[in-house]
């Protein structure tokens, strides 16, 4: 078992009335598995992902339960050790690639960042590894991309850079929080293909967060459906998609437009 979340509850305490955003969530992931979390805004899907990545603020927030990653319990892990895991064992990509990249830093440096932090490599070794990952994410002309700044790249290219930066240290788990929502359809499809390829080649497990059940069905082995902070249904993607048990899942599926083409 790569990742195991047990009875995770997250409460916000920055208002007068505490607000529970994640309630008793239990889920697990095997190595090399692609697992999807589907839900609408406010369902707690991003909160769950962020808590695995250790990116939730410690202040104003109460977390109960356990998150086991490779034999370590993340919630009780000291901040220093958690930081060692981030980027090294757990990589993350976000919805908005423009804001996730530093606009004043060259792409190459940003891709290398986790190597710089976690690996004892020389400058040339770092550069080579970064270049090879820029090629792996299908950015042709990797040398030029390495030397450019985020604003010189398109949205799709930026998201590829984000993936390269997340993957360069060879994490076992990649968390992808709505990585295609801000992109055009044609680019979306390419990014999904790329994630699939990375999963196959590197055996990287992917935790894929999305509001789009049809996207999740194509990409993920298993899926958790979340609503109002709780997991309402989970199972194999195909099963959940074609034989949903819960009303809410049925609603989500019904919201996907049906296109019955006369095949020719």
């Amino acid at each position: 078992m790569l990742l195991e979340i047990k009875q995770l509850t997250i409460e916000f305490h920055d208002h007068l009335v505490p607000e529970t955003v994640v309630k008793n969530v239990t889920m697990s992931m095997e190595e090399g598995e692609i697992v999807g979390i589907v839900g609408e805004s406010g369902s707690g899907k991003s909160m769950t992902a962020l808590s695995v990545a250790g990116l939730l603020p410690r202040k104003d927030m109460k977390k109960k339960g356990e998150i086991w990653f490779e034999g370590q319990e993340l919630l009780s892990l000291p901040r220093k050790e958690l930081r060692l895991l981030q980027g090294d064992e757990i990589g993350m990509i976000f919805q908005e690639p423009m804001t996730a990249l530093n606009p004043t830093m060259k792409i190459g440096k940003q891709v290398e960042e986790s190597l710089y932090l976690h690996r004892d490599l020389s400058r040339t070794e770092r550069r080579e590894l970064a270049l090879s990952w820029l090629e792996k994410v299908e950015l042709n002309d990797s040398e030029r991309v390495y030397e450019s700044y985020p604003h010189e790249l398109s949205g799709g290219m930026r998201q590829r850079v984000m993936i390269a930066a997340a993957m360069v240290a060879g994490p076992k788990l990649l968390i992808a929080d709505e990585p295609t929502t801000a992109l055009d359809v044609t680019v979306q499809a390419q990014i999904i293909q790329l994630l699939k390829k990375i999963n196959e080649k590197n055996n990287t497990a992917i935790l894929f967060i999305s509001h789009d059940l049809s996207l999740v069905k194509d990409l993920c082995d298993r899926v958790y459906v979340m609503k109002d902070g709780e997991v309402v249904e989970h199972g194999k993607s195909e099963d959940v998609f074609y034989h949903p048990m819960e009303d809410y899942t049925k609603q989500l599926i019904a919201a996907i437009p049906v296109i019955d083409l006369e095949q020719d």
Binding site: V185, T186, V187, Q188, A189, Q190, S214, D218, I259, L261, E262, Q263, D264
Partner: peptide
């Protein structure tokens, strides 16, 4: 929509439809 989706004439339309998972 019915004719366009079933038999797109242009390559770009085909690409858009494919990306959307329609064809």
């Amino acid at each position: 929509p019915s004719t366009l989706y079933a038999s797109p004439k242009e390559e770009y339309t085909r690409l858009l439809l494919q990306s959307a998972g329609i064809r």
